[in-house]
Amino acid sequence: MSESGHTWRLVFKGHPAEAARVRQWTRDRLTHRDAPAIANELFIAILGNPPARCSDAIEITLSTAGRRARISAGGAHPLPMLQTHGPGALIIARLSRSSGVTADGYGLWAQFHQELN
Rank of each mutant, 00 (worst) to 15 (best):
H32K: 08
H6V: 05
M1E: 07
L42Y: 02
L47I: 02
W25M: 11
S63F: 00
L30C: 04
P87W: 00
Q111I: 03
A57Y: 11
H15A: 08
Q111Y: 00
R67K: 09
E3G: 01
A17D: 15
R23H: 14
A65R: 06
L90W: 08
S63E: 15
P87Y: 03
L62K: 08
E3S: 04
L79R: 04
R23Q: 12
A103V: 13
P50F: 12
E115S: 02
A45G: 11
R68T: 10
G66Q: 06
A76D: 11
R21Q: 15
L82Y: 08
T84F: 03
S4P: 05
A103S: 09
W109K: 08
P87F: 04
S2L: 02
I60L: 15
L62T: 15
S96W: 04
P87T: 10
R53I: 14
D56S: 13
L79C: 12
V22I: 12
A93V: 04
T31Q: 10
N117C: 05
A35S: 09
Q24G: 14
S72T: 14
L108A: 13
S99V: 02
N117F: 11
S55E: 15
P51Q: 02
E18I: 01
W8A: 14
G75A: 12
V11R: 03
L116G: 10
C54S: 13
Q114S: 08
L82S: 08
